[in-house]
C-alpha cells in the first residue's frame, strides 16, 4: 500500500477538502507514514474476533416516536452563514 499524491487528491475530494499541489507534497508522506505504521495491526490474528463498536454494553433504548421539541426555527437558523425567510441559502444548484 502506498499513499501517493494522486491518492491524497482522491481522499481529499471524498472528504471535501480543497488541496493545493503544495498540500499534496505535505500530506502524502505523512499519511503514508501513519498508514504504514498502522500496518502492524495486520500481524494480529483476529480470526473469530467480533469487532467492538460499543464498549458500554448498554442496549440503546427506544422511545415513543413523538416530537419532543420543536418550534425553534430561529435557534436553528441563528448561526447560519446565510438565510432567507426561514431557509438556509446555498449557491444555486439547479440551472
Amino acid at each position: 500500500m502506498s499513499i501517493d499524491k494522486s491518492t491524497v487528491s482522491k481522499i481529499a475530494n471524498l472528504a471535501r477538502i480543497k488541496v493545493t499541489e503544495q498540500d499534496l507534497d505535505y500530506y502524502a508522506p505523512q499519511l503514508q507514514n501513519i498508514l504504514s505504521w498502522a500496518e502492524q495491526l495486520q500481524e494480529v490474528d483476529t480470526s473469530g474476533v467480533e469487532p467492538l463498536a460499543n464498549v458500554s454494553e448498554i442496549a440503546l433504548s427506544l422511545r415513543k416516536d413523538e416530537v419532543t421539541d420543536g418550534n425553534i426555527q430561529q435557534d436553528i437558523l441563528a448561526n447560519a452563514p446565510e438565510t432567507v425567510e426561514g431557509f438556509f441559502v446555498v449557491t444555486k444548484i439547479v440551472e
Binding site: 499513499i3 491518492t7 491524497v8 481522499i11 481529499a12 471524498l14 472528504a15 477538502i17 500530506y27 505523512q30 499519511l31 501513519i34 498508514l35 498502522a38 495491526l41 495486520q42 494480529v44 483476529t46 474476533v49 467480533e50 469487532p51 467492538l52 463498536a53
Partner: peptide, 29 residues
Amino acid sequence: KRRIMIGTYCLSAGYYDAYYTKAQRIRRL
C-alpha cells in the same frame, strides 16, 4: 485535515475491512 483524511481513507470502499473493522477487532482484544 490529516485525521479527516486518514479516517476517510480507512472508511473508503476496499479499505474498510482492512483498516476500520480490523482495528475494531483488535479493540475487542
